[in-house]
Design a protein around this nucleic acid. Sequence first.
DNA 1: GTCTATACAGCGATAGAC
DNA 2: GTCTATCGCTGTATAGAC
Lengths: 214, 214
Amino acid sequence: MAVAPANRTVPAPSTRERILFVAADLFARQGFHATTTRQIADAVGIRQPSLFHHFSSKMAIAEAMLEWDLGRALPHVRAVAALPAPASARLFRYLLDDVRHLSEAPYNLAGLYTEEVISRPEFLAWDRQRNQLHDIVEAIVREGVATGEFIEVNTALVREAIGGILVRALTVHSGGRGGGQALADQVARLVVRGLLRDPSEIDEVQAVALALGV
Amino acid sequence: MAVAPANRTVPAPSTRERILFVAADLFARQGFHATTTRQIADAVGIRQPSLFHHFSSKMAIAEAMLEWDLGRALPHVRAVAALPAPASARLFRYLLDDVRHLSEAPYNLAGLYTEEVISRPEFLAWDRQRNQLHDIVEAIVREGVATGEFIEVNTALVREAIGGILVRALTVHSGGRGGGQALADQVARLVVRGLLRDPSEIDEVQAVALALGV
DNA sequence: GTCTATACAGCGATAGAC
DNA sequence: GTCTATCGCTGTATAGAC
């Protein structure tokens, strides 16, 4: 925004960004391990060794994506969780922002948040960050159960269910080709309404969530 | 039951069954592609080439699991979907039976129902079967929306959400070490209650679902 | 049915010219 | 910054003895 170029076309993405874009797509469709550096290079239009001028290893490509996502999502969810608002509104707002952030991202990150990737020792640091995020979400759910906003549920199950829904929704609806806001609304309403003791309050919860200043 | 052995200990599992058991566990924890035939053989206690006496390839191991699951689940969901009962009860019953079937299975199948595996060309036949199953589930949801039992929802999103919840729930809660029935109850109640226009009917829906003769 | 030995393809990554 | 050439390793799978 500050020093944007005068012409209205976006600048051509750098090779580094094109690598991230096509690699994310391949990771999401084939998985990290089944995707080869040759496939990535072919999709970019360069030779396989040229990749290593931009990234020191295949894992470094994945790490750049994880950093882009978690570096933003984790501080954000911490801020949302700490707001003085009902648990239902905070959960709604988290879901709304996270789905929108992911679905409008330049990269499709669905391929990295799977056991086969995140559970590997090399990714331990990222797994910990993701777990922290899920801990915070589960804590919001637990608070909602304690206050009576939510029904009595197995919060560990809800935590996993939310993770599963996000990954599946993103796998199908990837890569920021519009509709991210609508998807985010639908996911947040479906999940929070399912937890509410009185589901008729969902519209009010949504209004409160949208009014939260984060 | 019919011709059970007299002694009360179960017969020692064959090497073939032990391969399926440990391979499923590794697939679920590491993913299919990240799991090597050497790891499977080590866990079984045999040498890597000995695997190929029991299965002609690594993929054949995965196929045996998929056949075990889909060969049973697909006919079952067809039968449930065709019952003369409300959509809510049929969806409840499907979820109940599927989660219980999966969570009490000798193998943890969560590692195979991911894009990275099921979307590969070699698994096309299985992907089609899984899609048929999801088509049937989505049709039940659509019927529930049409009759007014369920709220207006994006049925494609619900279809993916259900798939995501099942995979995550199974990844964590694997391998039939008890609690399968409780998990199945919780998943079915959570999902169906979230869809019901009047969630206070959930207990009645559950009762009807349990009474269905399949 | 399991073993040792090994074939052979494909992988990530490096070296060094341009 | 991209290329050609190639290395070293790991992966699945086969051959054939026991």
